[in-house]
Nucleic acid binder design. Structure first.
Lengths: 346, 346
DNA sequence: CTCCAAACTGAAATCGATGTCAGTGATGAT
DNA sequence: ATCATCACTGACATCGATTTCAGTTTGGAG
């Protein structure tokens, strides 16, 4: 490995001068130094720089599942911000598991300048360790019980649940089911509360057998939908708590040859690239994804700025938006007025 | 920050002894040391360890686009391997651009022990710099002109193109179009060659106006499909070079109210989670995704193993597999025998 | 030509952990 | 009680870059 000493020797100066040159200070013999660097192909050692400066120029990002298109988009948003900065992203999956999150965070705090986390559960204790380690922390997508002291970029999950409920109410549904994500995550809990609460206010109760809880993964969307279909009186509409569970629900409905929205309406949370191309095109509650990543990263970089001076936690809450497509319609199979379509039959 | 000296002082031993304890050597006063570590909340500095050992325990992963479900799955596969190892993943997007790849690699080589790369173009020079830096390099998905000296995990792109062609031939298509990815990437070039070559051998020529080249992004799939549709005599079947371009093609066909496969058959490369749920369910050439990530990471970790001893480059080539669904059918709109379905009309 | 301020330079200490090497202390045999 | 052996231990140098501090050089004014 070629070090700053090698460059210094070749250029006939001291390492200190080379170091100054590298950092853009004015230096008498800059030509000789530049030449030596080029000829030797010198690059400063990141480890040595970190040790001296205490900064790693690395941001840790922990998400439950990078193959979830939502998190992929969020991470891409973060990456678009770091591209023009000296920072890089250290990525880890927690797989929706607090233990894995724990392990990975313990390791991450030693390697990064800051962390962006979508915590596996609200009751998570780990982030407090992160706090101990004095590593700035920003939450994205999900919050923490007592996490108000941290920066966060969230969406109005409660409002999103409400939008879904209002949409189904406006279509005239009264037998409405919710398949929720883990209730000890903020999105899981709030989306359900917004949904069920709004229905209740309108006089529509969601009985326990319609009020099911899964884990944000496709398989649980599939299973819970099957169990809804096996009821003596299945619902006329289903609200699924995220993109993967919606997909699972859609698969289950297809497999059981249920007509959507003829027999059952389906509304999801989070849009998909393929949303408009599905059978039928999905009605969903949408939210900014890429932008959430951008905002979270900006918030973190601001904390990392030595001139920042601390300050209160910034809590950004973005709005959700209903996208009406063809998977929802009035109960009984009358097509939604939004689009005319043929009822499928087999 | 609490250092090994603090622990040593508290435990009444020398830093050297604490270091030995950390590395699992036998030590007289291990209780006192363990207690000091716990009380002080000590974690060794990753930067100092890297500087001393010359290893960062970090793997650089550079992909064109993390929001492409294929690459998301590949990265998840890699991550599943590093989980049980002390390694972490430094992730970067190249956005299908050689310049960005360049920038990011120059930075990465200083920070990581090894790199897994899906290069933006075959003519890329950058990886050679990586070689200069003595950082082990593994290719995934895409290869390099003259890259035979490097480990690689690839798929049989040529064979995949052939499978697509044979499928369309068996259905009786003769007016067949290809919308390819960038031809200076290995997959872009080979998928097209396998496809066009197989058709040619069967006596079916693909005229220039049917032989279009895009860039693996959804938008180009959309645009190229529109231009095919504007021809006086549009093709009866389209082969799209990757998942995103297939999606673009599907959108274009929907927007133009083309019946699939009634008027035009569509076959894609790479399956999607939503593949079976689309209108119509897509026929695709599928390949292992998660597994490719796993294999690439294993290959790299093997190189990193001090006991490895170099050896020749391992080049793994996986097979593709045709998944027949409902987006392909004989020309003229006869439904595929695989599934009965209603012809859409508006 | 002399002198002073400003601009630049290099030796050396430092960041935190590790590995070497020359011990020190304990153990067992005689 | 003495000595050889073995198991540990601590002082110190080291990894590569940065920063301080005490110079040295340069340029301009007088």
């Amino acid at each position: 490995m070629v070090t700053i000493h090698d460059v210094a020797a070749r250029a006939g100066v001291s390492p200190a001068t080379v170091s100054r040159f590298l950092r853009g200070q004015r230096v008498r013999s800059y030509e000789a130094i530049q030449a030596a660097i080029d000829e030797l192909g010198y690059w400063p050692s990141a480890a040595a720089q970190s040790l001296k400066s205490g900064r790693t120029n690395t941001i840790g990002v922990v998400v439950p599942d990078i193959t979830n298109p939502y998190f992929a988009a969020v991470v891409k948003g973060m990456e678009s911000v770091t591209r023009t900065e000296p920072y890089r992203i250290l990525l880890a999956n927690s797989d929706e598991s607090s233990e894995q999150e724990d392990d990975v965070l313990a390791d991450l705090v030693r390697r990064v300048d800051g962390i962006i986390l979508a915590p596996a559960t609200e009751q998570d204790e780990t982030p407090l360790h992160v706090r101990d380690a004095d590593v700035p922390l920003v939450f994205v997508d999900r919050d923490l019980a007592g996490g108000e002291r941290f920066d966060a970029v969230l969406v109005d999950n409660d409002g999103g649940g409400r939008q879904a409920a209002e949409h189904l109410l406006s279509l005239g549904h009264t037998r409405v089911a919710a398949i929720s994500g883990t209730l000890d995550t903020t999105p899981g809990r709030l989306r359900r509360e917004g949904f069920v609460g709004t229905l209740a206010k309108a006089g529509v109760e969601v009985p326990p057998e319609y009020d099911l809880v899964g884990d944000f993964k496709e398989h649980s969307g599939y299973q819970l939908t099957l169990s809804l279909l096996s009821l003596p009186e299945p619902p006329t509409a289903i609200f699924a708590a995220n993109n993967l569970m919606t997909l699972g629900a859609l698969k289950a409905l297809h497999d059981m040859r249920i007509d959507i929205p003829g027999q059952i309406s389906l509304i999801g949370f989070d849009d998909l690239d393929t949303g408009p191309l599905l059978r039928p095109p999905l009605t969903v509650v949408d939210r900014p994804m890429f932008e959430q990543g951008v905002l979270a990263m900006r918030l973190l970089l601001r904390r990392l700025d030595p001139g920042d001076g601390g300050g209160l936690a910034s809590r950004v809450v973005l709005d959700t938006k209903l996208i009406e497509r063809a998977s929802t319609a009035p109960p009984g199979g009358h097509p939604s007025p939004a689009r005319t379509r043929k009822t499928r039959s087999r």
